[in-house]
Amino acid sequence: MSNNFFKILRAGINTTFQDKGRNNLYHIGIPFSGAMDNRNYLLANKLVGNKLDLPVIEFAYQGPLLRFYGDKINIVITGDVVFKLKQKDKEIDGNCYETYQLENEDEINILSTNKSVYGYLAISGRFDLKLQWGSCSTNTKANIGSNEGKKLDNEQKIKIAEINENIVNKKINYLNSKIENIRIMKGTNFNYFSDKGKKNFLEKEFTVSKLSDRMGMRLEGSKIENIVNTNIKSEGLLKGVIQVPADGNPIIMLSDHGTIGGYPKIAVVASVDYDRLVQISPGSKIKFKEIELSDAETLFKLYEMETQNLLSQI
């Protein structure tokens, strides 16, 4: 056990430990969780020379201000993030996807995500965390996972169990692409909605509501009228499922979603667009575009190849 740690001088808005998520627990009510933007999570671990499945710190909007105590350590920030580093007495603006070395009492100040939601901080080493059902991911709504299932808080210490021996500085050029058109497949209750409702869903713009979090993204816009039943017999949910409750405003299930729900499913977001969907900030406009299952499978393969390609460049 090393004596290295971070002290949290400011925790940020929603700062949690996240990793690859938990499997095989939906049937007892425990969702997948894990890093919201999987590509940026993987890139963060790879840049600091870690195994790809290690936990990182995920933050939303405003991130944490951390002071490091200990030996040398490398850190990296991924996403579209504005941050500063205080190394000895000089302060510099940090670049995402570039590693920086921290020494005793250096600071990282993560000011904000830039027109996006989530960012990631990885260290060249391992945080001192326990796994719960195979994952460190924190689900703050169910109090599951690392840090007793809670957000990181001011004045807390983040202990580091181990620092990698060979620290190499790395950097890649990567620009997060943005999307406004979210590709979807029809859901199992698509025909619960009126022709006008379906048309609104597929053609009109929706605004991402402020009431969006790791559980779900709420949308506002043209109401989607239900002509069959505004409830279904409760059944399983998945991330990306779009439910429409009686008020006609769609909700997209995100990584910490409840595992069972009783609202009709109008559509499901294609996996290829999930990483970019979660980065769309409140107030932004989005539109849905219908695609077929076979297209969704092909597009995901291409996206995954691109991710692997990026990782192999590091």
């Binding site: 499997n23 095989n24 627990l25 939906y26 059944e235 299952l293």
Partner: peptide, 22 residues
């Protein structure tokens, strides 16, 4: 296959699209 969600009269079987397909 990475998750199963049984409910009253449905069973949802989720899988990792990186590994398999529908």
């Amino acid at each position: 296959v990475n998750n199963l969600t049984p409910s009253y009269n449905k069973l949802i079987i989720s899988y990792d699209l990186k590994v398999t397909n529908f």
